[in-house]
């Protein structure tokens, strides 16, 4: 019963979005895709609450969840949030700060990313926006996979916790970027001939050697993540590159068009779920 209520609440949230004056024909197409995407997982894991998908594999594997809940007692990313805040508030050489580049002084804006930038005609991610802000203020751009960019992203994500994505598909170009990301997600690649969807849709919850692939629904909500395997914080695009390498496919550049469009697609599939970054993963 609780599950039915939750699903109804989510559908209501989507239908509220559908009724908005700004909704485009492309938003409707994406919403149809999103509905099929969610239904796939809700049917596959009938006992899992839809809201729990933001927790990755811990939503579907009880043993992993036990360990993760113990880790969350003292979250390994906690200090990173403070470090990110320090970096965020530290003025640039010109006296300005990151706050000057973002709406609402950069607080609670994670939910607005990634979006399709109509002026630049490309998908704008939070990490790309952080580096554009640095460059606009005479600072060198940061590396995109770990380090300061992940700390800044972690702090900004933290200020958007429990919010839902507020992104859309405003025009044909944005829809093309979405389709490009969708095509990437479902395309087999690498010597192992595996698509993202092979592991995180078809084989989600099954054993791949000693690992259990997480469901794709909810994938982007918790980034950046503190990953035990990395021993530190990393960005979504770092994870994408790792996944590609795992299937022996040559990875793309972090924040290149391929991964930005993939992030756009995945984020649009997660509409209605809450943002919970930064988070901890295996």
């Amino acid at each position: 019963m609780k599950k039915i209520i939750t699903i109804c609440a989510l559908l209501a949230a989507f239908s509220v979005g559908s009724a908005s004056a700004n909704e485009t024909q492309f938003d409707k197409l994406v919403a149809e895709d999103g509905s099929k995407f969610r239904s796939y997982f809700l049917n596959k894991f009938a006992s899992v609450e839809v809201t729990d998908y933001v927790n990755g594999v811990y939503a579907i594997d009880a043993k992993s969840r036990e360990q993760w809940e113990e880790i969350e007692d003292f979250p390994p990313y906690e200090l990173s949030i403070d470090e990110g805040q320090e970096l965020f508030e530290k003025p640039f050489a010109n006296g300005k700060s990151y706050a000057s580049c973002f709406a609402n002084d950069g607080i609670n804006v994670r939910k607005n990313y990634p979006y399709y930038d109509l002026e630049l005609s490309k998908v704008m991610t939070l990490e790309l926006a952080i580096n554009l802000c640095r460059e606009a203020n005479g600072e060198k751009p940061l590396g995109y996979k770990k380090g300061d960019i992940a700390l800044l992203s972690a702090y900004m994500a933290y200020t958007s916790r429990d919010e839902t994505f507020n992104i859309g598909v405003p025009n044909q170009a944005a829809y093309d970027a979405y389709l490009d990301g969708k095509k990437f997600f479902y395309s087999k690649r690498g010597q192992l001939n595996l698509a993202c969807s092979d592991c995180h849709l078809v084989a989600a919850g099954q054993k791949l050697r000693a690992d259990i692939p997480s469901p794709a629904l909810g994938h982007t909500t918790g980034f950046p993540v503190y990953r035990s395997k990395w021993g530190g914080l990393g960005t979504l695009h770092r994870r994408y590159a790792g996944c590609n390498k795992n299937v022996r496919a040559q990875p793309f550049s972090a924040q290149g068009e391929e991964y930005r469009n993939l992030e756009f697609f995945q984020s649009l599939m997660n509409q209605g779920l809450v943002l919970n970054g930064p988070s901890a993963r295996k």
């Binding site: 796939y40 690649r189 001939n193 969807s197």
Partner: peptide, 23 residues
């Protein structure tokens, strides 16, 4: 052989990626 197979994979994916999406 690897390069030819990766090119075949590219062609296959271009034609069949939609087959893998939930219907």
């Amino acid at each position: 052989k690897q390069a030819e197979n990766s090119l075949l994979q590219a062609q296959y994916s271009d034609q069949h990626w939609q087959d893998h999406a939930p219907q």
